[in-house]
Design a protein around this nucleic acid. Structure first.
Length: 259
DNA sequence: ATGGTTGATCCTCAA
């Protein structure tokens, strides 16, 4: 089974690229972030005709997520216990994460709050959101679980093209990195990094200043697997070619093969 | 410190 995650930065504006990606890589499950669309706006007749079911934590906010699957789509849920706004159908943060069981694997498509700036309330909210997610994720370690998506954290210096440019920025602060590391300490495994030795480890390149053309990016998109799932991973890669050309998202898809 | 680009709720905000 091939699982992929991609911050698509607007599903409607890139539906053609989504369909091409599914075909190009023969993907079974695709978790999307920043769909920027309500459920009633999703023009997914194309992917449905390709055999995929669609579950959406649709939203008019910036951070909606969706899951496309051709190997089953069960137990769909949106949000997690304890998160601010959980159960509130209009709370934007409750739409930043959603899960489904696809082919026996519980897959969480997540968009970790951006944090904006270190002195912004959104930064505090980001850390709190991660702490609440961690509490819940500890309870999913006994199953085949994948936490996939845009973590908005670059865990290591080597995941950043130039650390001096991030001296006062979010994504690299010790509290954010500690929050990411906490998932690893609990037993989740970064199943992609072992298959993607440097130097090409980035998954995101800002639209500004031709960052992709100059390969000045960040590694902020990850697939974390529970122990039992991690043991089943045979291969993983970053599709950096998807970031090239006009009309690209600012993120590249990350793909994982599970036997 | 500022700027640069992209998408949507489209001249303002979020990323």
């Amino acid at each position: 089974m091939r699982i992929a995650t991609w911050n698509v930065n607007s599903l409607r504006s890139r539906i053609d690229r989504v369909e091409a990606l599914l075909k190009r890589h023969d993907i079974d499950v695709l978790a999307l972030q920043e769909t920027k669309a309500r459920e009633d706006q999703l023009p997914l007749m194309g992917v449905e005709s390709m055999g995929y079911e669609v579950a959406a934590a649709g939203t008019s906010q910036w951070n909606g997520v969706a899951i496309l699957s051709r190997v089953g789509l069960e137990e769909v849920q949106v949000g997690f216990e304890g998160m601010p706004g959980f159960g509130d159908p209009v709370a934007p943060e409750a739409r930043a994460i959603g899960a489904a069981v696809c082919g026996g694997v519980r897959i969480w498509s997540l968009y970790v709050p951006n944090g904006r700036k270190v002195d912004d309330p959104h930064y505090v909210y980001k850390l709190d959101w991660l702490a609440r997610l961690r509490e819940n994720a500890q309870g999913w370690l006994g199953e085949d679980t994948a936490l996939v998506g845009d973590w908005n954290i670059a865990p290591r210096d080597e995941d950043v093209f130039d650390m001096t440019q991030f001296a006062k920025s979010t994504h690299v602060t010790p509290p954010e990195r500690a929050a990411f590391q906490a998932f690893l300490d609990d037993g989740y495994v970064d199943v992609v990094r072992p298959h993607t030795p440097g130097p090409d480890v980035y998954t995101y390149w800002d639209y500004y200043r031709q960052r992709f053309e100059r390969n000045r990016g960040l590694r902020i998109d990850f697939v974390l697997g529970s122990t039992s799932l991690a043991e089943r991973v045979t291969h993983a890669f970053i599709d950096r070619e998807e970031r090239a050309g006009t009309g690209a998202s600012d993120h590249a898809p990350v793909l994982v093969d599970v036997r």
